[in-house]
């Protein structure tokens, strides 16, 4: 098993996943990237792969990001979840953080936000 940390991108929007992959590639951080396109798949991949970090959208098919947040500790307790969502109204941010997210990045995001968030999440 490689020591390279795994980062799981859970977002139904392939465009956002592409941008995130580009930005993460530009950070130079060695990561194994996985993708999932809905909440259910995100949880399944997390259970199987135990990623170090998960980037999580909130508005997704099958299972919402908040539901994923509520279940992630059971299936992958060491995964640090960073929410990336355009639903960044303050009550939603507070709810996500209270549910265990380590950070919340609103969309559209700046590449530096993502790079910063990846480093911080890995350093936790």
């Amino acid at each position: 098993m490689s020591d390279t940390p795994t980062l799981l991108l859970v977002d139904d929007d392939s465009f956002v996943r592409r941008i995130l992959k580009d930005v993460i590639a530009d950070t130079g951080i060695e990561l194994r990237l996985l993708e999932a396109a809905d909440g259910e798949e995100g949880l399944a991949v997390a259970a199987r792969e135990q990623p170090a970090v998960m980037f999580l959208d909130l508005f997704m098919p099958k299972k919402s990001g908040l539901e994923v947040l509520g279940a992630i500790k059971q299936v992958s307790p060491n995964t640090r979840v960073l929410v990336i969502s355009s639903m960044d109204a303050e009550p939603v941010v507070e709810q996500a953080m209270a549910a265990g997210a380590v950070g919340f990045v609103g969309k559209p995001f700046h590449p530096l936000e993502i790079a910063s968030a990846v480093r911080q999440a890995l350093a936790h």
Partner: peptide
Amino acid sequence: NLGRVLGPLALQALREL
């Protein structure tokens, strides 16, 4: 319509969104 789900959220949070 795309099947995307958001929740659970309080009514106030939905109102803000």
